[in-house]
């Protein structure tokens, strides 16, 4: 691509620059996709994103209905409004997809992510880490004389903020689940 000097915004699969005329704000959307839990369904969804040049910021998947074998895929993606609409339409036409809900536009929604953070340190840094963990309501799930593993849930932004604070205090590793989300109300 670089050899051809295609400008930013060009899609990789088409020679024509489809994005540019509508290059507006890039929005972040959380999509809940209800699918048949069958072999290959996740590959189908991920392949759609990579094949058409869409972004995945986070993706979680698990079977939520064990009798009906339905899984819920929660995807956080970014794009212009036109791209977001295209993503939803493309997801919607996949045969194993039952429903696509855009939690960002369909009323308020709760978003939560779980993270495990390993922080190693001694002395003041260790005390400071524990104090900040209390403020962020992170739980200690493993502890040695030289390390903690904190568990916390919250919005991705809250986890980002906590991880940022832990960095100078000896942050070693982070494991995050990605976002799970539900709309508020009945």
């Amino acid at each position: 691509m670089s050899a051809l000097n295609i400008t930013k915004g060009s899609s990789s699969h088409s020679a024509y620059d489809l994005r540019d005329p509508y290059a507006e704000v890039i929005e972040s959307h959380t999509l809940a996709v209800l699918v048949d839990n069958e072999s290959g369904v996740l590959a189908r969804v991920i392949g759609l994103f990579s094949g058409r040049g869409y972004n995945i910021d986070s993706l979680t998947v698990a079977e939520v209905d064990h009798t009906g074998h339905r899984s819920r895929i929660t995807i956080v993606t970014r794009g212009t409004p036109q791209v977001i609409e295209q993503i939803k339409a493309q997801l919607g036409r996949l045969v194993p997809v039952h429903a696509v809900n855009d939690l960002t536009v369909e009323g308020p929604a709760v978003q939560r992510e779980l993270a495990l953070l390993k922080v190693a340190g001694k002395g003041d840094a260790r005390i400071e880490a524990l104090r900040l963990a209390e403020i962020f309501r992170a739980n200690v799930v493993d502890s040695t004389l030289e390390s903690f593993v904190f568990e916390m849930t919250g919005t991705p932004e809250k986890i980002d903020a906590f991880a940022e604070l832990m960095r100078p205090l000896g942050l070693r590793e982070v494991a995050r689940t990605g976002v799970a989300a539900l709309s508020r109300g009945a």
Binding site: L18, A89, Q90, G92, R93
Partner: peptide
């Protein structure tokens, strides 16, 4: 096909 709408 709804994905044809507003694609291009």
């Amino acid at each position: 096909d709804p994905s044809s709408i507003n694609k291009v």
